[in-house]
Design a protein around this nucleic acid. Structure first.
Lengths: 231, 231
DNA sequence: TCAAAAGTGTTTGTGGTACACCCATGG
DNA sequence: CCATGGGTGTACCACAAACACTTTTGA
């Protein structure tokens, strides 16, 4: 019998697109172990809250970001899903701590607030990650792999964009995350053909010719079963 | 702070093909809560063992099935992966118990042994599941969904078959799991084209014309990235 | 010779990929 | 008028789906 000997935490990998780069929100640890090092936001699960509630609470306490669909909220996470549970017996020097990792996507510009558990919160490029506490580097790498994977067969990528966006911005988002160039004509044809976005009727003016703005269709089928019997 | 107030278990959904049916291994609970009801094998995680070790140990204790690649072992699990972590605060009447669920595939005929923690272990059809303890029905349903999903884009299905098998047997396996008929010629072409199996040179005699036996190619690329940008 | 299961090809449609130029606007 | 990014079409190829008959064996 081992009740009471194992602690459970949740940790959340939060992705956003900033400066044409895929970034992760990290917090600087105030207290040991690993104090002064960067970590993904997270903390202990309370006895009477669900894992999702714990993830939302820790996120809010450490970064000011709220989970939910509320309009007008400056900082909200529209998308969160369970990633994996990491349970190596030696992943935390304090003792046996199992962590249920989540991964979240937020539209680019979010107001942050340093919370009580963390002295600082900062966005860091996934390509230049600092040394991180615990096994958090492994968790972030796994989350990135999952994000890339999901990007290709679900419409999850729209969660990283503002409510309306141009097709070029969408393509840049895909290219940034996948780390490769995509053909403009093929990209547009596939996205439009997939019927997941619709034109807003508005245009965005900028440097060159104004671009049509699109929005994600809420009624879109985000994930479709594809008969493949492995490639 | 909540250390010590939350218990962690692992539970394993084990699938096998028996009698042209997809079945799950269930154990009858000896002790409360839910004593006398069916449950998937599992139990508390020890402080000093990893989640995978805990899954393997519980599996062995309750069913006699060993995890690993050992040849000659009558009952071994060649495939196991983490499924999901279920953490609803009220999923266990004894208190807060979070369970890390795994799902495993075994080739059809495995010798079972009732263990000390379970008075009985039995294979049950996924289509006619009995009333189950805790949220185990939910876990099994989720595992089935995952199995069907993986079947289509990975070569995981071969883990449910003996080392050598006919193409008809493979097709029956797919049809049983997916719950639908597949076209024989298209199925064979795709499987052979995918280069995941090779002929053994042996034939299996039976009712009609003898059938070529195939084996899974260990060097096969089981999962290939397919550029789709959602269907 | 019959029953039972194994094995085999072609046509058609759809979607992926490669590829280059004109368009609308602001400065 | 020019720089900047927005927007468009076609040809080829690979693979998915639909579809029915011949072959081999044992009883």
């Amino acid at each position: 019998m081992n009740r009471g000997q194992i602690a459970v935490t949740v940790d959340v990998v939060i992705f956003a697109l900033r400066d044409n780069d895929l970034q992760v929100l990290l917090v600087k640890r105030k207290y040991p172990p690993f104090s002064g090092q960067w970590a993904i936001p997270g903390g202990y699960v309370d006895v009477d809250e669900s894992l999702e509630e714990a993830a939302a609470r820790e996120l809010y306490e450490e970064t000011g970001i709220q989970v939910g669909e509320l309009e007008g909220s400056a900082a909200r996470v529209p998308y969160i899903e369970q990633l994996y549970t990491f349970g190596d017996p030696h992943r935390d020097p304090r003792g046996r701590v199992i962590t249920v990792a989540y991964f979240a996507l937020v539209p680019a510009p979010l107001a942050l607030r340093a919370g009580s558990d963390a002295s600082d919160a900062e966005w860091k490029s996934v390509h230049r990650l600092p040394k991180m506490a615990f096994d958090h580097d492994q968790i972030v790498r796994y989350a990135l792999q999952r994000l890339r994977y999901k990007l290709e067969y679900t419409a999850v990528g729209f969660q990283l964009l503002p409510p309306s966006f141009t097709l070029s911005a969408l393509q840049r988002a895909y290219e940034t995350i996948l780390g490769e160039k995509l053909d403009k004509r093929n990209f547009r044809r596939r996205i439009l053909h997939a019927q997941v976005i619709e034109p807003t009727g508005e245009f965005q003016s900028g440097e060159g010719r104004p671009a049509m703005l699109y929005r994600f269709r809420e009624d879109a089928v985000a994930e479709v079963k594809a008969r493949r019997l492995f490639p």
